[in-house]
């Protein structure tokens, strides 16, 4: 019987290097989304008429997606807890729940996008531009950039989660469950701010 030993190295600040790397990634992502959110907020304050456009977004679907993401954050911390106890089967089950949560989120978002596109609200909203309403057209550009970029992060998180599930089933890299979880929490964190901005503040 051979023994594979996976050593975790600590940085000078006593933070495991994997975690430190993830925190650096998260800080970078916060700058990207923080910049977008602040830019949106500035325009929202400048153009109060955006509230009419925000009224077209579905608060129900937005709230449902918030519940789904919060619950999937919970399932991924439970996966991390199970991985620490070396319970691979339980960790895999919780991670599967997280991936399913991501899938539900994407299905909800697709349904929402379909309704909005059918109403003529697209990335450039040509119908609004033809009527000279460039300001309200800009709202939808922000909306699709922010939610689209966020959805891409959800997809990336799901892919990472599936790869790590395959690895832990082989008994490898159990510590990566926490790292995948941290990334997933960041995705949740961004949505926590996108939801009130785009769905509640009308």
């Amino acid at each position: 019987m051979s023994t594979k030993q996976q050593h975790l190295t600590l940085s000078e600040n006593k933070i495991p290097e994997g975690r430190l790397g993830l925190w650096i990634l998260i800080a970078g992502e916060l700058v990207i989304f923080g910049g977008l959110i602040m830019s949106y907020l500035l325009h929202r304050l400048r153009y109060p008429q955006w509230s009419e456009m925000a009224a077209h977004t579905s608060t129900f679907i937005g709230a449902l997606n918030t519940v789904v993401l919060l619950c999937s954050s919970y399932t991924v911390v439970r996966a991390h807890e199970a991985a620490q106890k070396l319970d691979v089967a339980k960790a895999t089950r919780w991670m599967t729940c997280t991936v399913l949560g991501g899938l539900i989120f994407l299905i909800d978002k697709s349904v929402e996008y379909t309704h909005e596109i059918q109403e003529g609200f697209t990335f450039t909203s040509p119908s609004l531009q033809h009527s000279g309403d460039y300001v309200n057209s800009l709202f939808w550009s922000y909306y699709y950039i922010m939610t689209g970029l966020h959805s891409l992060h959800v997809i990336a998180g799901m892919v990472v989660m599936i790869i790590i599930m395959v690895q832990i089933k082989k008994g490898k890299n159990l510590h990566r469950v926490e790292l995948a979880g941290m990334y997933w929490h960041m995705v949740d964190l961004i949505w926590i701010f996108l939801f009130p901005l785009l769905y509640i503040a009308k």
């Binding site: 019987m1 051979s2 023994t3 594979k4 030993q5 996976q6 050593h7 975790l8 190295t9 600590l10 495991p16 994997g18 975690r19 919060l70 619950c71 954050s73 919970y74 911390v77 439970r78 807890e81 620490q84 070396l86 691979v88 082989k170 008994g171 490898k172 159990l174 510590h175 926490e178």
Partner: peptide
Amino acid sequence: TVINNNESVVFPDAEHEYHGHPHYTRIL
């Protein structure tokens, strides 16, 4: 140690001992 396919994989302790766990259900 995790036993898997006739291999024992040692789970790193540094990460284990790095932090505790809050009451996640309460937080949710």
